[in-house]
Design a protein around this nucleic acid. Structure first.
Length: 420
DNA sequence: AAGAGGGCCAACCGCCTTGGG
DNA sequence: CCCCAAGGCGGTTGGCCCTCT
């Protein structure tokens, strides 16, 4: 453990790289590739350790680096990803083509943290500082109680206490207007402070320890992703998460489909048989459906998210029923043995209703527009709201698979609204 | 003009993980 | 299984540069 053996070797240069060293490294790697990094310095004629060469190449010399200042979209995306992933800089960097983890880490520490604090947002929790301060006071008194809750919860229960302790948001203060209070969206004619999301490690070994939540304001729209990496079989575990702070949401009992049941009073979802689903969107437009739109639950089977050929969405609706047209319950359950962390885990969902879709377009710069143009694919339905299902047009179809599969991802519209 | 202070960022450090023997 | 080398990652540091006084 500890210092790498190569670092003990004598006469190795440290510190900044000279142009001559850079040239040697570039010449060597472009000609031979890096192969084993420990052999690179010797072969390239460098008095450096292999790690140093690797770092120099990855962070500075490799040709696909973007360089230059970060765009506003990139910053917003970093903030968003940080809310989900925390200080997993390499994972964040993986979603920003041409950017390195070191670069993003430096940007975060030198710039973004400061900006967030100036806006009254705690950069660690992505919650309002006032809320964090009050919670810190409260936590001093309730630590013992929280510990009790953790110990009492079952392995398969989504645990908000634990989630919060891990630096993620909890259901408290999920209203985004509170989280990003300094952005005057109405005055600027841009989308409302669209969402925050958080992840928490679900204790269930069957759910690949991943849940993420996504909330829109003013309507209620929760989205969670999960993936069962350990088994293809029906999971009979009992999963639960609490939606008690969603004031406009009404939830129907969906137990008849054996997928999900809810308690309207407690607004607690119980996912009884989580059958290897990749994602589920739960949405509601409020208690009375005055706009005539439907509420829906849409389910997407495992893998189709990244593989168009497997797309198989099932939509369950209540309220007005036309969203059922989106259903295709073939439910193909093939699995891909692909490292989940290599994927974009963050669920992005566009469109709460028509107004919101239009609002989103306000924040899309012209070069983003290509994400919204093009043909509609069936799988784009699954990440979207029931209302959108009824009203979708090719112009408002977000190509989910595209977002996750290529560098279009970096051009995702900032769902935070302007952050500058 | 010069020194202090702070910001930025490239690079290092130390630990963890992985894979081969 | 254990050991070890190598790769990978996140935290930290050191030095350059800019701004302020």
């Amino acid at each position: 453990m500890g210092r790498h053996s190569c670092c003990y070797k004598q006469k190795l240069r440290k510190g900044l790289w000279s142009p001559e060293e850079d040239e040697k490294l570039i010449k060597h790697i472009t000609k031979f590739g890096h192969g084993c990094w420990s052999s690179v310095p010797k072969l390239a004629g460098l008095q450096r350790c292999g790690k140093s060469c690797r770092l120099r190449w990855i962070n500075y010399l490799r040709p696909d680096l973007k360089r230059g200042t970060f765009s506003q979209d990139e910053e917003n995306l970093i903030i968003e990803l940080h809310a989900v992933l925390g200080n997993k800089w390499s994972q964040i960097a993986a979603r920003l083509p041409g950017r390195t983890d070191n670069e993003i880490k430096n940007l975060w520490n030198s710039s973004i943290k400061k900006k967030l604090r100036q806006r009254g947002i705690d950069p660690n929790t992505h919650k309002p500082l006032s809320e964090v301060e009050s919670e810190e006071k409260a936590s001093a008194n309730s630590n013992n109680k929280n510990n009790d809750k953790v110990s009492e919860s079952s392995n398969n229960e989504f645990n908000f206490v634990e989630a919060h302790e891990n630096g993620f948001s909890t259901e408290k203060g999920i209203n985004n207007m509170e989280r990003y209070p300094l952005i005057d969206h109405q005055a600027n004619n841009i989308a409302p402070p669209t969402h925050e999301f958080f992840t928490a490690n679900c204790k269930s070994p069957d759910l690949s320890s991943y849940l993420s939540f996504h909330n829109y304001s003013p309507n209620t729209n929760i989205l969670f992703n999960t993936k069962n990496s350990s088994s293809d079989n029906m999971v009979s575990d009992h999963h639960q998460f609490n939606c008690s702070t969603l004031p406009n949401a009404t939830f129907s009992t969906m137990s008849s489909n054996s997928i999900l049941s809810t308690s309207p009073l407690a607004r607690t979802f119980n996912i009884n048989k989580f059958q290897n689903w990749e994602a589920c969107t739960i949405s509601s437009n409020g208690s009375n459906n005055s706009n005539g739109s439907s509420n829906s639950i849409e389910l997407q089977s495992n893998c189709s998210f990244f593989d168009n050929s497997n797309a198989a969405a099932a939509a369950f609706t209540w309220g007005s029923a036309s969203a059922a047209a989106a259903a295709d319950g073939s439910g193909k359950q093939e699995r891909e043995e692909i490292k989940w962390s290599e994927y974009m885990q963050t669920p992005f969902s566009l469109g709460v209703n028509n107004n919101t879709i239009q609002n989103h377009h306000h924040e899309i710069s012209p070069h983003h527009q290509d994400l919204y143009d093009g043909e509609t694919k069936s799988e784009t339905q699954f990440m979207t709201h029931g209302t959108w299902l009824q009203n979708q047009t090719p112009q408002t179809s977000l190509q989910t698979a595209d977002l996750y599969s290529n560098n279009n991802f970096q051009r995702l519209p900032a769902v935070f609204g302007q952050f500058s």
